[in-house]
Design a protein around this nucleic acid. Structure first.
Ligand SMILES: [Mn+2]
Ligand SMILES: [Mn+2]
Ligand SMILES: [Zn+2]
Ligand SMILES: [Zn+2]
Lengths: 149, 149
DNA sequence: TACTTATTGAGAATAATCATTAAGAAGCCG
DNA sequence: CGGCTTCTTAATGATTATTCTCAATAAGTA
């Protein structure tokens, strides 16, 4: 599992710095209950409630940065804004099935997808940061409700 | 001088449309006193005052569009936001000398710059949209005031 | 007149700016 | 070797600017 010191190492390697804000954000995501995802706004409010407020600017900046570093995954759920979760390696790596009506999200695993992603990236000489299958769909419950569109 | 019908022609040629908003924006810039430049916000307020309000979204979208079409010029003055003016051909084509302290802006002409720009673009096979020399400086009056930085 | 689809407007999300702060590197002793 | 002081410059936070989204509208065209 990703530690604060490995974050520091990776940052420093690129001439960047470990800040309390980055450390806090990493820890929030590491301690996030399985299956939960946070938007920038969610994170902002959560931090305020915990009395560790970080500015929205900094949150946006670091969510993007940590996604590009491959530490977080940027998820396109069905709410009109991005969500994030920690990017975990193989045994925990998973994909998302999202109900576009009620936003209920199910995480599922599939090793062959990850393998294929890794192989494809490698074949092209790309450095893999994340590989996620996102399925937008309508859940059984919303199907039953028969509401138009 | 650019007319509404030539704007319509150029738009339609690309599958785009002439809207009242675009027409209004063009006319505002055409009637703008020589040497005046408008920011998105300036334009928004100006239109509100004239009772022809156009949404800020639409203003931003069209300022960018019309700049890319070569109808407007996007100016990097010294105020932290973009300004725009109509993009006029040769005899009216000009450049800008801006005081970064008081924002006083002087327009000046220089045919050789335009010629060089045109030649350079042509040599590389580029289609010239605009060619502007922007000079950021400190005006005599601000020099005299001797204020630090 | 009907039809397709670009455009608009409202609101939300995200990015940019800039002065201020503070990591991390480097130099200096003890 | 450590701690302390400097120094450079990345990062933050507050604010502002700009972009994105989506449902509703309307331009151009058949
Ligand atoms: Mn959400
Ligand atoms: Mn201005
Ligand atoms: Zn559902
Ligand atoms: Zn001046």
């Amino acid at each position: 599992m990703y530690t604060v010191s490995s974050l520091k190492a990776e940052l420093n390697e690129r001439g960047w710095r470990l800040t309390p804000q980055r450390e806090t954000i990493l820890q929030i995501f590491q301690n996030l209950p399985k299956g939960q995802h946070l938007s920038a706004e969610d994170l902002h409010i959560l931090l305020q409630e915990e009395g560790e407020a970080i500015s929205l600017s900094t949150i946006y900046r670091n969510l993007k940065l940590m996604s590009r570093m491959g530490i977080l995954r940027e998820l396109e759920l069905a709410e009109g804004h991005k969500h994030y979760e920690i990017n975990q390696p193989s045994p925990y790596h998973h994909h998302h099935l999202i109900c576009v009506r009620c936003n209920k999200t199910i995480e599922f695993k599939n090793d062959s997808i990850l393998k294929m992603g890794a192989k494809t990236a490698q074949k092209e000489g790309y450095h893999l940061l994340d590989c996620q299958l996102t399925i937008h769909a309508i859940c059984p419950s919303c199907q039953r409700s028969l509401l138009p569109v």
